[in-house]
């Protein structure tokens, strides 16, 4: 703002060097990212779709078998069960996580300015999924876990958190809420920072309570951020894998055999990469549909602030 004379307007330099545009340079700059995108995203996706029409064990060449994998998928009760279990997990995980994250984010903004306090909220996110799962596996162990020893100490019955069909998905959902809620809260917190303080001032002058302002100001103005957060977290939640792989390996019976874990099992322990690819394509389709619907329903591209 302070500079009044631009060092040398771009127009002059261009005029002197003759006409040219920056397209080629721009392309060059996005080249690395594009290569990564093509090599690590587009190519695997296309190859995965191709493999879903083959019988492939990874060590011998794939054999084309048409729609066999998809027919098998539709008839596979374990696949449908995995779909159901995954959905149940996503509903619990996203439900708790979003509400909790919103409350934490609002508290971070409205109640405290301390960076260290805000930092603490994020710490579980710094722990890797595998470590978090291992730690909770011990905390929640039926015999030795500290949680169950406290429960037993209170004179209550021990809870088989990870070894009963009823408890296992809520428990895994809780573990992942614990790990991800800080990160989600931070994203929402960033959105809150974008809401101008003046709106709250006006509310306060009108005599609105904190709760009223939360409902009538914060939530509506946060909608675009919230829907973005939801899209990211729902997509991530559908792909739950590591916690299951460490803590339950799909059990008891099939009660935590989520889709990603079933795909992994079919591919890497049963060597049926064709069928596993077909199920991955199904997951991709489901995610595309869900994201599209969410995007449309929440009008994520427009803000009420403008």
């Amino acid at each position: 703002m302070a500079t009044t004379i631009p060092a040398r307007p771009a127009r002059f330099r261009r005029a002197r060097n003759g006409p040219h545009d920056d397209t080629r340079l721009a392309l060059l700059f996005i080249l690395p990212a594009t290569i990564g995108f093509l090599v690590f995203l587009i190519w695997p996706t296309l190859r995965g779709i191709y493999l879903s029409f083959t019988k492939f064990n990874l060590l011998t060449p794939p054999e084309f078998n048409g729609l066999d994998n998809y027919v098998r998928m539709v008839q596979d009760p374990v696949f449908w069960n995995a779909m159901k279990v995954t959905l149940y997990y996503v509903v619990l995980n996203i439900g708790f996580q979003t509400v909790l994250a919103l409350v934490i984010a609002v508290m971070m903004q409205r109640l405290t300015q301390r960076t260290w306090l805000r930092g603490i909220v994020l710490t579980p996110f710094l722990v890797s999924n595998v470590v978090a799962a291992m730690v909770f596996l011990w905390i929640l162990d039926y015999q030795l876990g500290i949680a169950n020893n406290i429960i037993a100490g209170l004179g209550l019955e021990r809870i088989p958190f990870l070894s009963s069909e009823a408890w296992v998905i809520p428990t895994i959902a809780f573990i992942n809420v614990w790990r991800h809620v800080g990160y989600t809260a931070l994203l929402i917190f960033a959105g809150l920072q974008m809401i101008p303080e003046t709106v709250y001032e006006a509310g306060r002058i009108d005599g609105a309570s904190e709760v009223r302002m939360f409902r009538s100001i914060t939530v509506p103005l946060l909608r675009p951020i919230l829907s973005l957060v939801l899209i990211i977290t729902v997509v991530g939640s559908f792909q739950v894998f590591d916690t299951v792989a460490i803590a339950t390996r799909g059990g008891p019976v099939d009660s935590s055999r989520v889709l990603q874990y079933y795909i992994y099992e079919v591919a890497f322990s049963r060597f049926q990469f064709g069928y596993a690819s077909a199920m991955s394509v199904a997951l991709l389709v489901v995610l595309v549909i869900i994201t599209f619907v969410q995007y449309r329903l929440s009008r994520a591209e427009s803000s009420d602030l403008a």
Binding site: L137, S164, G251
Partner: peptide, 11 residues
């Protein structure tokens, strides 16, 4: 029981 021995991570 299955619950007691810790399910998938049985001791």
């Amino acid at each position: 029981s299955y619950e007691e021995i810790g399910g998938a991570n049985a001791i």
